[in-house]
Computed example of a mutant assay.
Amino acid sequence: MSNKIKVSLFNHLIDAERQLLDPEIRQSERALDALLDDEFIEIAANGTTFNKYQVLTRLPTEVVPQFYNQHFKGRMLSDDVAQLSYQAAYRRTARSEFNYSLRMSLWRKQGEQWQMVFHQGTPCAPFTISMDDD
Rank of each mutant, 00 (worst) to 15 (best):
A94I: 08
R58W: 11
V81F: 12
D80R: 02
N51P: 03
V64Q: 05
L102Q: 03
T48R: 11
L102S: 07
F40K: 00
S96P: 04
D80H: 08
V63R: 06
R103I: 13
D38T: 08
F67A: 00
Y90P: 00
K109M: 15
K52N: 06
K52I: 13
M116R: 09
R108T: 11
V63L: 12
Q87H: 13
R108L: 11
T128H: 06
Q54A: 14
G47S: 13
Q113M: 10
V55Q: 08
R91Y: 01
K52R: 12
A34N: 09
K73D: 05
Q110V: 15
L102N: 05
R108M: 10
P65Q: 04
D38M: 07
V64K: 01
E97Y: 05
G121C: 07
M104T: 15
L36F: 15
V63Y: 05
L84Q: 07
F50K: 01
V64G: 02
H119C: 05
P65F: 07
T122W: 02
S78P: 02
M76N: 08
G74S: 06
Q87Y: 13
F118Y: 15
K73F: 09
R103F: 14
N46I: 07
C124E: 04
W107D: 06
T61Q: 14
N51D: 15
D33N: 14
L35Y: 12
F40P: 00
Q83Y: 05
K109A: 13
A125W: 03
F118T: 08
L35C: 12
Q83P: 02
R108P: 02
R103K: 15
Y90M: 11
T122H: 02
L35I: 10
F127D: 01
A45F: 08
A88D: 03
F72A: 03
V55S: 03
G47Q: 09
Q120C: 12
F118R: 02
G121M: 09
M104V: 15
R58I: 11
Q66D: 10
Q70M: 11
L35M: 09
N69M: 04
R92V: 03
E62D: 14
A94L: 15
D33T: 12
T49M: 11
Q110Y: 11
M76S: 08
Q113F: 08
R92H: 10
E42I: 14
N51Q: 08
F127T: 04
H71P: 00
H71V: 00
Q70W: 10
G47E: 09
K109Q: 15
W114T: 02
Q83S: 03
G74K: 00
D79R: 01
V55N: 00
K52L: 11
P65A: 14
S105I: 04
R108H: 14
A82E: 06
W107M: 12
Q87K: 14
T48Q: 13
K73P: 00
Q120H: 13
H119I: 03
I41W: 04
S105P: 08
P123M: 08
F72I: 01
